[in-house]
Amino acid sequence: MAVVFFIVILFCDQAVKVYIRSSFLPGESLSVIPHVFHITYVLNPGAAFGIFANQRAFFIAAGVLLFCLAVYFYPRLRREGRWLRFSVASLLAGAAGNLIDRIASGLVVDFLDFRIWPVFNLADIAIVGGVIGMMLVILFPARFDADAERRRQHG
């Protein structure tokens, strides 16, 4: 199921980005809730908040490394609880969504604009959600990883 979750997140991220690229001009903004939420087409050359701008090779290498590590650790991950598997799937789907943008153009398509925060995208939400999920599993394993603990006790 985590693989399906990964595919759904990646598909939604890319589908919305295709829509944004085909419906907006860079910098164009549509007010959804005035002064609160807008759809704003931004091409981001960096990471969160635009840091490390124009470091395309670095971000592509980091994304590829992340996927190589995920493939390497996949057999161990399969034995872990579903919360960890879904958290990692979310993180990887978000990283893949932004990696596709970086490979294609060197720029990440951002569009969610709450006016009090830099513009971001669905992939960014997936990355943050995946990291938070992994932190919860690490900090509270009995609460979030009970199914893995039961499997370890029974065999």
Score class of each variant (00 low, 15 high):
residue 1 M to F: 12
residue 1 M to T: 15
residue 7 I to S: 01
residue 9 I to H: 07
residue 13 D to A: 14
residue 20 I to E: 10
residue 27 G to D: 04
residue 29 S to K: 09
residue 29 S to Q: 07
residue 31 S to E: 15
residue 32 V to H: 05
residue 38 H to P: 06
residue 41 Y to L: 09
residue 41 Y to A: 11
residue 49 F to H: 06
residue 50 G to P: 11
residue 51 I to W: 11
residue 53 A to V: 00
residue 54 N to C: 10
residue 55 Q to C: 08
residue 58 F to K: 00
residue 59 F to D: 07
residue 60 I to Q: 00
residue 63 G to R: 02
residue 63 G to N: 02
residue 64 V to P: 04
residue 67 F to M: 10
residue 68 C to H: 01
residue 72 Y to V: 15
residue 72 Y to R: 08
residue 73 F to C: 12
residue 73 F to I: 05
residue 77 L to C: 08
residue 82 R to G: 06
residue 83 W to C: 02
residue 85 R to A: 11
residue 86 F to T: 03
residue 101 D to K: 03
residue 103 I to G: 01
residue 104 A to C: 09
residue 105 S to L: 11
residue 109 V to D: 06
residue 112 L to D: 03
residue 112 L to N: 03
residue 113 D to A: 06
residue 114 F to H: 08
residue 115 R to Q: 12
residue 116 I to F: 07
residue 117 W to V: 10
residue 119 V to G: 06
residue 123 A to Y: 06
residue 123 A to W: 09
residue 124 D to F: 10
residue 125 I to G: 12
residue 125 I to A: 14
residue 127 I to F: 15
residue 130 G to W: 14
residue 134 M to T: 14
residue 137 V to E: 10
residue 140 F to G: 00
residue 141 P to Y: 09
residue 142 A to W: 09
residue 143 R to M: 11
residue 144 F to Q: 03
residue 145 D to F: 02
residue 147 D to H: 14
residue 147 D to F: 05
residue 148 A to W: 00
residue 149 E to Q: 15
residue 152 R to E: 15
